[in-house]
């Protein structure tokens, strides 16, 4: 059960966008920005407020890779595995990060809630390949060592 403050915040967000059915996506985007994830309880709550079936809201939220029902870490790392990054060896970077952070394809977030590791299909920065981002800050021309160093820095910060 979520704290009442979550529902109050959600009410605020809904008030901002209006309770039109078309506002579903902007509303849940804002919720995700607020909490770094989309709590399932809030998705159902929003669906109720907007008069959308829970199954339909779930359908929308799962269609977009961006929405996550799991709480994400403080630093969200996205490793690009688009064609350009892939041929310039993004996978070794990803593997190094998995081992540094103790994560895997199934487990995306560290237990201390510091890091979440995801892959994306293209960040649109192919000229800087292989590229990764940490909370939307872009790190170009990465290597496995540089990635490991970055993790150490972030841990220290």
């Amino acid at each position: 059960m979520l704290d009442q403050s979550y529902y109050d915040k959600t009410d605020e967000i809904i008030a901002e966008h209006g309770s039109d059915q078309a506002s579903l996506i902007p509303i849940i985007q804002d919720i995700q920005t607020e909490y770094r994830y989309l709590p399932p309880e809030l998705l159902n709550y929003v669906a109720g407020k907007l008069g959308i079936n829970e199954a339909k809201a779930y359908s929308v939220a799962t269609f977009y890779e961006n929405f996550s029902f799991e709480p994400k870490g403080k630093y969200v790392i996205k490793v690009c595995d688009g064609t350009a990054c892939h041929v310039r060896k993004s996978i070794p970077i990803l593997e190094r990060l998995y081992s540094e952070l103790g994560l895997s394809e199934e487990k995306a977030t560290t237990d201390d809630m510091l890091f979440t590791l995801e892959t994306v299909s293209c960040l649109g920065a192919c000229g800087l390949a292989p590229v990764m981002t940490v909370n939307d800050k872009v790190y170009p021309a990465m290597t496995p060592d540089a990635a490991a160093e970055l993790i150490r820095e972030l841990r220290g910060a």
Binding site: P40, N44, N53, E54, A55, K56, A57, Y58, S59, T62, F63, F69
Partner: peptide
Amino acid sequence: DEIQGLGILDFAFRGSKMQVTPAF
């Protein structure tokens, strides 16, 4: 959804992972 007005089932996920399921 349309006939019964219940909306228990819907599509979830997309592409090859798409399935029909109740919410969550």
